[in-house]
């Protein structure tokens, strides 16, 4: 029933879409009260599904949680995939947002509109070549020419195509550069922030310095005169940093984590039971 072919398949598709649209059309006529109740009910059912999937004990043999003959574990996989797919369909919304902003910039000739043109150019070129490259694998049809998708194994390391040029040449380097800007920012942040304005700032600074020095040879040289296997070896700067990380950093992270976990748990329950009223959509549905 869930797998159909040929004419039946088309009929099922059309039927499903038509049915869904009809249902929505009927609901559209309903009162606010009905829509509101429906929304709350759906939120509840959505949460209930994963709640049960977690709390119903699984069969030790199959490791599947079964409720009234339904395998929740298997269903969870389908639900997970469906969530992923529905999320995937929203990507165009993101694209709309960008196109809206940059389209307006170009149309109204706002200052800097030429940069928006660059955005469109990059977006279009990359989209065309990325999809062209794999089009045949997905939908069949003629293969993309070699300069779009070079599949010669001899070039395996660096296919000589436009997509690779854009990806390896631009995207990867832009990514890496933006990431590496952190090196500069971590220096300027340290210079500005690590000043002994208060006791807390002093502690922050001293510990950060010890840890920094514990990582590089120059810092290790400071305490290298302490023998590495005597009773005092713990005072070597690298051992000291390790000790701070395991004996103080770890419990702090754990304690903060417990609080965060409970906070998230409470938040999850408030959303699930629609107790977060007015937070997201205040007045009416």
């Amino acid at each position: 029933m869930w797998t159909l072919t040929g004419f039946k398949f088309i009929l099922a598709i059309v039927g499903a879409v038509a049915g869904a649209v009809l249902l929505l059309a009927i609901l559209h006529q309903a009162s606010h009260q009905v829509k509101r109740t429906l929304t709350i009910a759906l939120t509840f059912i959505g949460g209930l599904f994963y709640f049960l999937e977690f709390f119903i004990p699984p069969d030790p043999k199959t490791e599947e949680a079964v409720l009234f003959g339904w395998s929740l574990t298997q269903a969870a996989e389908v639900v997970g995939n469906a969530t992923l797919v529905i999320g995937g369909f929203t990507f165009l919304l993101g694209v709309f947002s960008l196109v809206h902003i940059h389209g307006n910039n170009v149309r109204r000739r706002r200052p800097g509109w030429s940069y928006s043109l660059a955005f469109f150019a990059a977006f279009l070129v990359m989209t065309v070549f990325a999809f062209w490259k794999d089009w045949q694998t997905w939908f069949g049809g003629p293969a993309a020419p070699a300069w779009v998708n070079d599949q010669n194994l001899a070039h395996a390391a660096m296919p000589q195509d436009v997509y690779t040029l854009l990806f390896e040449g631009l995207v990867r380097n832009l990514d890496a550069t933006m990431f590496s800007i952190l090196a500069f920012y971590i220096v300027s942040a340290a210079y500005r922030a690590f000043r002994i304005r208060s006791g807390e700032a002093a502690v922050l600074m001293v510990v950060a310095l010890v840890l920094m020095m514990g990582q590089v040879p120059l810092g290790m040289a400071l305490t290298n005169w302490i023998p590495s296997d005597g009773p005092w070896s713990g005072l070597r700067i690298e051992s000291l940093s390790q000790y701070v990380l395991t004996a103080i950093n770890a419990p702090v992270q754990r304690a903060i984590g417990f609080g965060l976990g409970l906070g998230a748990l409470a938040m999850a329950m408030r959303i699930w039971l629609s107790l977060e009223r007015g937070t997201y959509f205040g007045q009416e549905v």
Binding site: L52, G278, G282, Q283
Partner: peptide, 22 residues
């Protein structure tokens, strides 16, 4: 003001359903 006009919510019956199911 904006939180007063919220959605009604179903906690008690929800809890009952959950507990019964479990």
């Amino acid at each position: 003001d904006y939180v007063r006009v919220g959605m009604p919510s179903p906690p008690w019956w929800a809890v009952v359903i959950v507990l019964l199911l479990l």
